[in-house]
Simulated assay, not measured.
Amino acid sequence: MGDLTFVDVCSGAGGLALGLEQAGFEPRLLLDDDELAVTTLRTNRPQWNVLHTDLLDFDPAEHPVSHDVDLLAAGLPRVRSSATARRVDTGLEERLLEAAVYLVHAIRPRAVLIENVPELVHSDVHRRFRDFVRAELDHLGYAFSWFVMNAVDFGVPQSRKHGVLVALRRQWAGAFRPPVPTTREPMTVGAALGPSMAAHGWADAARWAAQADQPAPTLVGGSKNRGGADLGPTRAKKKWATMGVNAHTVGDRVPGPDFVWDPELGRDNMVKLTVEQAALLQGFPATWQIAGLKTARYRQVGHATPPPVGKALGRAVAQALSVG
């Protein structure tokens, strides 16, 4: 088939785009409205065509390079779910979902991939959006697959569920199969972060890693209207505490040789994860550089689609497009 091409909207830190690249896709255009996210993308992939713009303002007619691609991908800001019930609802996330679907009319990709919260797939709250997708895309000749996948099943050391829509033109839709898990035994936090915890000579890194013997709870990036970074809601913080991690903040550096790790003494004697370690828990390579100050960097990481999830989805789409 040659190189498969894609357009990625609301690209963020590039997790979905990186995964698609690993699956053999070549980006024609990426866009995001956050200046730091755009800097992250351009820093790690100078050759990528990255546009600093809001999806709601994007006009494909002004960017013909986006036309007639194999895949339109969108790892969009999360709509409201049980995990974000307290969030002020502005309706922006729903408008971005609809804007991504409207792009299909202009770009006419062979496949569409939208990734969001798992409730998007099955909740009555989001039935209107599912009906909207069918009304907009059915007459254009697309057939749909809605499914939920968990990043932990694809080698990511984190329990993180994704609601996914894959729509393909009907001549390829019958060949599409959702990704099959690639990992039998989940990667644990300790296995993923043990080497980095020991990097500055902390003697207790191995003992900590042995206690952090489970996947991480879902990392949450939070909103720009919130204060500093933390690792998630109360339930997640309690789970982190069982692993000896202070989840109420994000650290500036990994422990040094003099750090005393004793969770029974309270938060000050628990380890703090750094932004770089959070990125490892999202499945980013250690070489991926995130732009900005700590809170903004963590927010980009927490909002990202784990690259291994993007890679699995890309391979599944590529396999379907290779038929016929």
Rank of each mutant, 00 (worst) to 15 (best):
155 G>T: 13
182 T>F: 04
175 A>Y: 07
33 D>I: 14
162 H>N: 02
230 D>V: 11
154 F>G: 04
147 F>W: 02
273 L>Y: 02
36 L>R: 12
18 L>T: 02
275 V>M: 12
268 D>P: 07
114 I>Y: 03
269 N>A: 13
157 P>I: 09
316 A>Y: 05
96 L>T: 08
18 L>Q: 01
207 R>N: 13
98 E>A: 15
116 N>I: 02
74 A>W: 14
245 V>D: 11
33 D>F: 15
189 V>L: 10
250 V>Q: 04
262 D>M: 14
146 W>A: 12
113 L>E: 01
11 S>Y: 07
35 E>A: 14
166 V>P: 00
75 G>C: 00
125 V>P: 03
301 V>D: 03
104 V>L: 05
246 N>S: 05
6 F>I: 00
51 L>H: 10
36 L>P: 03
41 L>C: 09
115 E>P: 00
298 Y>F: 15
261 W>V: 12
167 A>N: 12
257 P>R: 10
198 A>M: 11
132 F>M: 05
313 L>V: 06
324 G>E: 10
145 S>F: 02
210 A>W: 02
182 T>C: 05
278 A>P: 07
101 V>P: 06
195 P>W: 05
213 D>P: 09
67 H>A: 12
122 H>D: 13
12 G>T: 03
76 L>W: 02
308 P>Q: 07
58 F>M: 07
233 P>V: 10
156 V>N: 03
50 V>G: 00
40 T>R: 07
288 W>H: 06
230 D>M: 14
230 D>S: 15
164 V>D: 07
23 A>V: 01
282 Q>I: 00
146 W>L: 12
6 F>D: 02
163 G>F: 01
155 G>W: 07
289 Q>I: 11
242 T>C: 06
260 V>K: 09
159 S>C: 13
89 D>F: 09
217 P>Y: 13
173 A>V: 02
55 L>Q: 07
21 E>G: 15
